[in-house]
Design a protein around this nucleic acid. Structure first.
Length: 427
RNA sequence: GGAGAGGUGGCAGAGUGGUCGAAUGCGCUCGACUUGAAAUCGAGUGUGCUGAAAGGCACCGUGGGUUCGAAUCCCACCCUCUCCGCCA
């Protein structure tokens, strides 16, 4: 949620920054208009309520000191009270309607881009800031895509998954299932060692949780819903962890909180019909180890850099070549103010593909979820900052492993770091 | 699925129609005592909106209703807990 006060006080500057993402003139103008109407009604309404409260108190006092309900004085006050009530019953619904409309629009406005995010309209203008592991890029020419490798080795099965569920699902078999499990354990162990507290949240989440992290109301099409229960399949652990402290007031000393979680993620992938139809890249269900931080606003930028490092550390340990790009303003996700994507080298495609997205949401999700902290000795509360990143997407990591570690004889070498987890060195 | 209990401030917990935004305890802040700390004592301490300020308004699970006046009465809904049943 954007800061309405900030918008109201400085609408032009605010809009200019928001428009670095795209055209938000219309919703912003609507917000400003509704806000003004609502506030002027509020002044009116609260004056009436003040008088009504006064009457209530007066009557109470007089009755206590012996007045009778039939007394002319009491009757007059009751009369006035009734008149105010009639006026309020007209004003209140109007104001409520404005508030609801205002809230509905506010929930659809994305986060302000960071002042440091590169300007741009689309992913074409993202900025590469780092490459790592060029020396590990395979030089062999006849490389197979991971789905062919997986099917040859009998460890991935897509056809039977269609029978069980639908397209865009996979069944892992034997060493494939073991590899997935090994990767999850490896990633969690590394992040726990880096200071993150592991959690295992519910895989079904309610509408409030999805709204707090920003998936709703705009992206309802992207999530699977269990209609009769007001529960949705988790699209990312970010949603669950963000709501772990929803509506809480934390002590400033408790910050920062660093969490990691393994969860499956479920996405409808609406609107990506033709894309990545083969392999592990774009499935309705995939595993992910997520990193999430609740931090003091003063520290969110260094915390963001460190989060990126923690995600990169997994790829480095697995010796998978990757690059880091910073998303331009036009390519930022809805809740993010600043985002680094990590892209891993996929030899079969001959390009880098996203394997992690590390975002600083600043106070955007904190506002939506009412996530606050209090500093000892200071009056009032402040919104904290939230950050999230994949550490990493497990399916895409498997894809990258199979492709980058394939050998001329068709087998797959297991990265050293994983050998102990998998109990073998060749697949 | 059946039965019952309950949702009040950072937490625990009182409050059944009027000066209740809410007792009390814990916690927290400041002060006194102390070499320091603990203990003790004293004062203060909810959140949000609005206003230059004084102040005003809202909030006792949510939404309605009764009343001049609702945490308190009425209706509906949601959620939590306990016991029983079923079950990984």
């Amino acid at each position: 949620m954007i800061d309405l006060k900030q918008l109201r006080e400085n609408p032009d500057q605010f809009l200019a920054r928001l428009n670095q993402r795209g055209d938000y003139n219309e919703p912003v103008q609507q917000v400003l208009a509704l806000d003004q109407q609502q506030r002027s009604l509020e002044v009116n309404r609260s004056q009436l309520q003040a008088r009504s409260n006064e009457i209530g108190k007066l009557v109470g006092q007089k009755m206590k000191s012996g007045a009778q309900p039939e007394d002319a004085e009491i009757q007059t006050l009751r009369e006035e009270g009734n008149q105010i009530k009639a006026q309020l019953s007209e004003l209140e619904p109007q104001e409520k309607e404005l508030k609801v409309a205002l809230e509905a629009i506010l929930l659809t406005i994305p986060n302000l881009p960071s002042q440091t995010a590169p300007l741009g309209k689309s992913e074409a203008e993202n900025v590469e800031i780092k490459r790592w592991g060029d020396e590990y890029i395979p030089t062999t020419t006849d490389l197979l895509p991971h789905w062919e490798i997986g099917e040859k080795l009998g460890i991935l099965n897509f056809e039977r998954s269609v029978k069980i569920a639908q397209s865009r699902f996979v069944t892992l078999i034997g060493a494939g299932a073991a590899l997935e499990r090994a990767l999850i354990r490896f990633m969690l162990d590394r992040q726990v060692a880096a200071g993150y507290t592991e959690i295992s949240p519910p895989f079904l989440v309610n509408t409030t949780s999805l709204t707090a992290s920003g998936q709703l109301p705009k992206f309802a099409e992207e999530s699977f819903k269990c209609d009769r229960d007001d529960l949705w399949l988790l699209p990312t652990a970010e949603v669950a962890i963000n709501s772990l402290h929803r509506d809480e007031v934390l002590e400033a000393e408790a910050l920062p909180l660093h969490y990691c979680a393994y969860t499956p993620c479920f996405r409808r992938e609406a609107g990506s019909y033709g894309r990545d139809t083969r392999g592990l890249i774009r499935l309705h269900q995939f595993d992910k180890v997520e990193l999430f931080k609740f931090v003091h606003p003063d520290t969110s930028e260094p915390e963001h850099e460190q989060l990126l490092n923690d995600a990169e550390a997994i790829l480095q340990a697995l010796k998978l070549p990757y690059r880091v790009i910073e998303l331009c303003t036009g390519d930022l996700g809805f809740s993010a103010s600043k985002t680094y994507d990590i892209e891993v080298w996929l030899p079969s495609a001959g390009k880098y593909r996203e394997i992690s997205s590390c975002s600083n949401c600043r106070d955007f999700q904190a506002r939506r979820g009412n996530l606050r902290f209090k500093e000892a000795g200071k009056k009032g509360t402040q919104f904290l900052h939230t950050l999230n990143g994949s550490g990493l997407a497990v399916g895409r990591t498997m894809a990258a492993l199979l492709e980058n570690y394939q050998q001329p004889d068709g087998t797959i070498r297991v990265p050293e770091a994983l050998e102990a987890y998998l109990g073998r060195s060749i697949l």
